[in-house]
């Protein structure tokens, strides 16, 4: 590993794009801190998505594709939130990449 994040006196290995190398290092605090490094303040709306992603990953061992995410968010949190526009407003670098990073999920391999 060639990169790391220093937080609360501890060093966390990451890859070049800032994804945690060890998923077990994740905590809400490190998520907040990683977001701050990207000039992003995580509010309740962000956390709804992050918590959803973590629960999805826990259950299925995969990060959902964006259209699966939007559909599922719409079903769980309401139709007004179940669209990619809403998700891109929260995560301007792309919900798959950015939200997965703060949620401590593996980096999407960018297969499509």
């Amino acid at each position: 590993m060639t990169a790391f994040v220093e937080f609360n006196g501890r060093t966390y290995d990451t890859d070049e794009e800032g994804y945690l190398a060890n998923l077990s290092d994740w905590s809400p605090e490190i998520a907040d801190y990683m977001a701050k490094l990207d000039d992003c303040d995580l509010g309740d709306a962000h956390w709804e998505v992050i918590n959803f992603l973590r629960a999805y990953y826990q259950k299925y061992q995969i990060a959902p594709a964006v259209r699966v995410l939007t559909k599922a968010i719409g079903k769980k949190l309401g139709k007004d939130k179940g669209n990619s526009k809403y998700l891109y407003q929260l995560f301007p670098y792309g919900p798959a990449k950015q939200a997965c990073k703060y949620a401590g999920l593996p980096k999407p391999t960018g297969c499509v």
Binding site: M1, T2, A3, D15, E16, E17
Partner: peptide
């Protein structure tokens, strides 16, 4: 199996 771009991005 790594190309130049991948090598750079994954260090």
């Amino acid at each position: 199996i790594v190309d130049a771009d991948q090598a750079k991005r994954s260090g």
